Amino acid sequence: MTMPFDGYGLIQEIDVRLTVELGRKNLPLREILSLGENSVVELDRLTDEPLDIMVNGRLIARGEVVAQGNRFAIRILELIGPSGTAGAGPQAAPQGGAEAPIEDRRAPPPTVEQI
């Protein structure tokens, strides 16, 4: 018996790891061992650059930190397409009247209230 395809209904409840990367820094082990309270590690990102938002280690979007009550949240600024380019997310229109590619049919990112 085959069941009709109903979008992503079967996989929507699968847990994935969402991470937000503030920046990176490669350090030799001796510098890591010398870190202590009040140590400062300068990262490779400027304060006005968007943060990388990843699912299971894959870049999917860029965003900015916002405050939601007494918690931090992320506002999505741009979605990253499957080829790693910005702007290839759900807002991209299908071409030539063909069915939209899979990346254009995915659900929109969650709102702050859903986090």
Rank of each mutant, 00 (worst) to 15 (best):
41 V>L: 12
35 L>C: 15
27 L>Q: 05
1 M>N: 06
11 I>Q: 04
80 I>F: 00
30 R>Y: 06
35 L>K: 09
104 D>E: 10
115 I>C: 07
84 G>R: 14
96 G>Q: 14
46 L>C: 03
73 A>Y: 05
87 G>Q: 08
36 G>W: 00
97 G>W: 00
47 T>F: 00
109 P>Q: 06
11 I>P: 01
6 D>M: 13
111 T>H: 04
39 S>M: 09
53 I>G: 03
105 R>Y: 00
45 R>V: 08
41 V>D: 10
75 R>Y: 00
2 T>C: 02
10 L>T: 09
69 G>I: 12
91 Q>K: 14
74 I>V: 15
89 G>T: 08
3 M>N: 08
82 P>R: 15
81 G>H: 02
77 L>M: 12
2 T>S: 11
25 K>D: 00
52 D>T: 06
90 P>M: 11
1 M>W: 03
17 R>S: 13
78 E>D: 13
11 I>A: 07
90 P>F: 00
100 A>V: 06
113 E>D: 10
16 V>D: 02
29 L>G: 06
40 V>F: 00
25 K>N: 06
50 P>K: 10
12 Q>M: 15
11 I>F: 06
57 G>N: 08
102 I>P: 01
73 A>Q: 07
66 V>P: 01
16 V>K: 13
64 E>M: 09
43 L>W: 00
115 I>T: 07
30 R>S: 14
104 D>C: 06
78 E>M: 06
39 S>K: 10
